[in-house]
Write a protein that binds this DNA or RNA. Structure first.
Lengths: 107, 107
DNA sequence: TTTGTTTATTGCAATATTACGATATATATT
DNA sequence: AATATATATCGTAATATTGCAATAAACAAA
């Protein structure tokens, strides 16, 4: 993106926006759904499952890891990636709170 | 973003990614929360409430409108913006489904 | 220690996003 | 009609994202 004036928004607004941004790509959605659907979560499996080159997938994994949406543990040469449930639940809770504020007031 | 190979992902993955992308900016989060918190929803109020220039806010409103997260109705010279509850509920439902798939299987 | 395997990093081209001044448009008021 | 008000659009600079080839790094096995 261009210059984002994040310093003028609240920490809360920046935090939820950053979490959603980390998920806001079809490849990263696909990664999260894949990790939720399989037992194994070896990085190579994810690479094979996506229509993207290995470095590109690695980059998407890094973004998800930075946002704490996934986490990885080393297993010999491979890396086992999995969902960080805490973060996904935090996002779900956020939308739950939004729904509670809906009152169908105008338009 | 750069070239996004969206044609290689499912419609479902692209759709949810696009919805999240529309929300993935602190200004747009602030707009949604503001619309949920006030009764009035005149465009000018939103502009005054945000630390951004009017054309920038207008651009963010357009993105939210394109994603059908908000909708606007003309009221004389002004425009009344409000939340499209259906879309927010769709997002909430999505994260609810994700949570159902969590099984704490590895890592 | 050489070789193979797996994942991460670097560097770069193509494209998208963000922000805003200037300006246009559309409606209301006088 | 002229003016004021409210919002959208255009043009553009600055920066971010996406994707991948090439390469590095880290570890295992021979």
């Amino acid at each position: 993106m261009g210059i984002s004036k994040s310093e003028n928004f609240s920490e809360r607004e920046n935090e939820i926006a950053a979490l959603l941004k980390a998920l806001a790509h079809p490849a990263r959605i696909a990664i999260v759904e894949y990790l939720l659907s399989v037992d194994s979560c070896i990085c190579g499996d994810i690479v094979n499952h996506l229509p993207l080159a290995q470095p590109t997938v690695s980059q998407h994994l890094k973004e998800l890891k930075n946002a704490e949406i996934i986490q990885g543990t080393i297993e010999g040469t491979a890396i086992c990636y999995c969902i960080n449930e805490k973060t996904l639940k935090k996002i779900q809770l956020y939308f739950g709170k939004l729904e509670n504020k809906m009152k169908s007031k105008c338009c």
